[in-house]
């Protein structure tokens, strides 16, 4: 179990270091997912299975989906084809693939290992966490729920296309096209010397 902890820790550090040195954001995202999975393994070996499960679901699941969505929205257009071609490049995913395969081997080792084998620390299960969460920390839970509500409202407000704003955007677009089409008339007005009456 100690060996499992150290291997997962080394994988997490390697993945994070590779993540901050990648040039393309999608490659960095791949390394970040593997880093989160390695940290989930670290949490499990630290005797916190509930937190490990939440790490996989929320970080490697929900937050990564958010990042992928935003990247897809930022890469609309012709660049999407190039990115699709880059995805098929095996160099992009062979590094995260190898590290994730090591993590999978660790998972198989943990499952195969005798169930009675103690970890490096005593395990704190979900029951104790739940009792502590809704006992002395009840006020904190309420505060977190208010924070999440504020996050929802803020994200909705920022992502909302105000009707006036969209129309002004379209108007700007069409006026630019009109300026291109009827460029001579516009320039005829602009080029006129200002000192002439």
């Amino acid at each position: 179990m100690v060996l499992t902890f150290y291997v997962a820790a080394v994988i997490a550090v390697i993945c994070t270091a590779l993540m901050i040195t990648r040039l393309k954001a999608v490659h960095a995202l791949l390394y970040l997912v593997v880093s989160f999975l390695a940290l989930a393994t670290v949490f499990y070996t630290l005797g916190a299975p509930y937190v490990a499960v939440l790490e996989v679901i929320v970080y490697a699941g929900a937050i990564m989906v958010l990042f992928v969505f935003v990247m897809m929205m930022l890469n609309i257009g012709d660049r999407a084809i190039q990115i699709e071609r880059a995805w098929l490049d095996p160099k992009a995913w062979i590094g995260p693939g190898i590290l994730a395969a090591i993590l999978l081997a660790e998972l198989a080792y943990i499952l195969v290992a005798p169930a009675g084998s103690p970890g490096i620390v005593p395990e704190v299960g979900p029951k104790e966490v739940g009792i502590a969460l809704f006992g002395p920390y009840l006020l904190g839970v309420e505060l977190v729920s208010m924070l999440l509500l504020a996050g929802i409202v803020g994200a909705y407000h920022l992502g909302w296309n105000a009707p006036g704003e969209v129309e002004s955007l379209y108007a700007m677009e069409s006026s630019r096209q009109r300026a291109v089409v009827s460029g001579d008339f516009v320039r005829a007005g602009v080029d006129r010397p200002t000192d002439t009456p």
Binding site: A48, V51, L66, F67, A132, L147, L148, A155
Partner: peptide, 22 residues
């Protein structure tokens, strides 16, 4: 051997989720 650390991690998790969405 206390559960308080995991409770704090849950709070950090919720805060990170709200932060990254905004």
């Amino acid at each position: 051997g206390q559960a308080d650390g995991q409770v704090m991690f849950l709070f950090i998790l919720a805060m990170a989720a709200a932060e990254v969405s905004v």
